[in-house]
Amino acid sequence: MDLLRRWVARQFTTRVIVLMPVAIAINIVLGATIQQALKLPIYLDSIGTILVGVLAGPLAGALTGILANLIWGYLLPAPVGSSTIGPFAITAGVIGLLAGIWGQLGLFRPRRTGAVNVIGAVVAVVLVGALAVYTYARAYASPEAFNNNVSGNSAITIDQSKVFFLVVMLVYVVLVAWAIFLRRNVGAVYAIGAGLVTGIAAAVVSAPIAAVVYGGVTGSGTDALVAAFRAGGDSLYQATLKQGLLSDPMDKMITSFVVFFIIGSLSRRFIARFPNGERALGDEAEAGAPAASES
């Protein structure tokens, strides 16, 4: 019991308490403005959440996400305030929690492009790919197969699941290639892989919320997609899940990518002072590239 209390207290130092409102403000401001500018189902409203999770731990990350949603939904007036984001606080909490775990596992560390790291990266890609294949096969199975809990090739509606899965993996590969060839940083593979897994989890958690509270719609363009799935006979839950599995992984992959580079750009001195900082940084030797200048 005391160990638990100490684990909790360790994650909420004054520095973390100061970082959280900054992260929440970043979530809200970036989320609102980027959504306006790009008009894509890419929200980038979890940057702060994932950043806090990686730097401070799962509990702090989860709370940042939850509070950000609640504040955005219920404490800020329009036009900044969003009337639909509140109930998704649970999803945001899960995102922050996962980010904390990834941070503890060191998945956001910068890594040189050396032999060991590349092999590790390949293994990671395979693992993540396998998880994605399973999830997409289950989700995009025909409605009968989905409801009867049958999985496996015989029940897959081949076209749908393959198309969506390929789209997501394509985005993954593009981001990773950019990181490796232009920035020489294999660590991005792990970070983006973590983002993919986080995105899948987010979609799975959001689907029931969207279905129950909003009847599956959010007032944005993706509703047409949900409607199309519904027309094809999918249940409400399955339709929102399919839509989520398309937009959430992409959004979280890009967000994790961004957080990875933000962490890489901050000075070691700054990061080392956070509860999870040492683990987020790893050894200087492993990082390869010269440490960012002391600020």
Binding site: F12, I17, V18, M20, P21, V22, I24, A25, I26, I28, V29, T33, L63, L67, A68, I71, L75, L76, V80
Partner: peptide, 21 residues
């Protein structure tokens, strides 16, 4: 006080961040 601070400071910071943006 920590939770109070986080929520209070976040609410004050959002408009300021928007201004800066």
């Amino acid at each position: 006080r920590r939770a109070i601070f986080v929520v209070g400071a976040a609410v004050q910071m959002v408009p300021r961040t928007i201004e800066r943006a």
